[in-house]
Amino acid sequence: MVPLSWYLVLSAILFCLGVFGFLLKRNIITIFMSIELMLNAVNLSFIAFANYWNAHAGQRLASGREIVGLSGHVFVFFVMVVAAAEAAVGLAIIIAVFRTRETLNVDRVNLLKL
């Protein structure tokens, strides 16, 4: 029996580490990976709350229709889909930036138009 709060604290720690990476790292690819870390932290809290809801509210609604505890899993599924799309587009943008500027340092990418 692990308290639910442990999972949520782990999620908060991972999220804060992701924000630290986003603020402190200078490489554009590492900044992008920090965003993925934050998405994963949120996914963890979704899954923890889905388990909690399932254990406490029971598997069926009063109408006896559907399992609501699993909605958290479906949300995580959608987060993963959006993260995959984001990774594809974001990495294409990184490649385009590298082609024009020959650098991955975000401090040197400070002009909208060359």
Binding site: M1, P3, L4, S5, Y7, I13, N51
Partner: peptide, 18 residues
Amino acid sequence: IGWIMINNNKQLGGVSIA
């Protein structure tokens, strides 16, 4: 966030292997 979670530990309850 950590402080709130630890404070509400009792209300949140536990998670067992489902």
